[in-house]
């Protein structure tokens, strides 16, 4: 395979042709923040936090989209880069309820981490903030669109699963938001509660209802578990707090690993000491169901009786 040689922060780096700048830099041990970059649907280039300085380029370059080229001279943390990142974070925080004290995502939130790293205090810029209703209509997923930074990872991952594509970007300008069709609530939408979106959200905009208020992210230990319901073999994390299993959450969906509610519920039942109450959508509403029904085993169970 042919390679390209470039200079990153003064260091010579050689990578295979076609490597993204982001990967070239992180591979060489340099840190670059990212919000919207997703290995499974790359080249989005929305959040702009990953910009770097490339000598000779008119503007800063989004490293998650640009390809490393021979002879490139790249700075990942130059004053111009740091200034842009700080301003971008400042802009995000100016439109964000800085709620870290009670936020379920605190400790595992990129916005929080990067604000800390770049010493951005909130809110430096005043002005209007989005003010959406908290959507807890879905029994599994909480959506707080006020915390959304519009990285669109959720949109892309939901669209990647063949039969889904439930949410998309709606409206323009400052009013842009992620929404199901007709800006309905998640419960009213065709969402199948697979949690793909939750697993990719870099901030606390999408969180698991079953874990809400139960744990702080740093208190839990994770153990990878694999679903065996179907041949896809999706991966989940079993969360333990003080040795006690408290929940099962989806790991990022991968190629051919669609994630589904049944899979997650099955693992909940299997591992969780206090599994959540399963609910399924019947007609327009979510209703409590038996585990057998939730897992699609009611007929089988009936026969076994």
């Amino acid at each position: 395979m042919s390679t390209v040689a470039l200079t990153i922060n003064g260091q010579e780096v050689t990578v295979p042709k076609g490597t993204r700048l982001l990967d070239a830099a992180t591979g060489a041990g340099f840190f670059i923040p990212t919000f919207c970059h997703d290995e499974n649907s790359p080249n989005y280039g929305g959040c702009r936090i990953c910009v770097v300085e490339v000598k000779g380029a008119r503007n800063l370059v989004a490293s998650c989209c640009a390809e490393a080229m021979n002879g490139m001279v790249v700075e990942t943390e130059s004053p111009a880069v740091v200034e842009a990142r700080k301003t971008i974070l400042e802009l995000m925080l100016a439109n964000h309820p800085v709620d870290c004290l009670t936020c379920d995502k605190a400790g595992d939130c990129r916005l929080q981490d990067y604000a800390f790293r770049y010493d951005v205090k909130a809110p430096a810029l005043g002005g209007e903030r989005k003010d959406y209703e908290f959507d807890d209509s879905n029994p599994y997923i909480n959506r707080d669109m006020n915390k959304c930074i519009l990285c669109a990872k959720c949109v892309r991952t939901c669209q990647e699963a063949e039969d889904r594509g439930v949410i998309s970007l709606a409206y323009r300008g400052f009013r842009t938001k992620v929404a199901p069709a007709l800006d309905a609530s998640l419960a009213e939408s065709a969402c199948v509660s697979c949690s793909r979106c939750v697993s990719v959200c870099p901030v606390g905009a999408l969180t698991y209802k079953s874990l809400s208020g139960k744990t702080r992210t740093w208190e839990v230990e994770k153990e990878e578990v694999t679903c065996t319901w179907c041949e896809a073999g999706c991966q989940f994390d079993l969360l333990r707090k003080n040795g006690k299993a408290v929940g099962v959450v989806a790991k990022s969906p991968g190629n051919g690993r669609p994630l589904c509610l049944k899979g997650r519920l099955g693992l909940e039942l299997k591992y969780n000491d206090e599994p959540m109450t399963p609910m399924l959508k019947k007609g327009d509403e979510y209703v409590e169901v038996s585990w057998a029904e939730a897992l699609g085993l009611d007929e089988l169970v009936e026969k076994l009786k």
Binding site: G45, G46, C47, R48, I49, A84, T87, I88, L91, M92, A94, N95, L125, G127, E128, I149, L150, A152, L169, Y171, R172, G173, F174, R175, T176
Partner: peptide, 14 residues
């Protein structure tokens, strides 16, 4: 603004 990128969506507002 199409709302895709942060500097334009949030920056022009400020």
């Amino acid at each position: 603004s199409c709302g895709k990128c942060t500097p334009c969506r949030e920056g022009t507002k400020r």
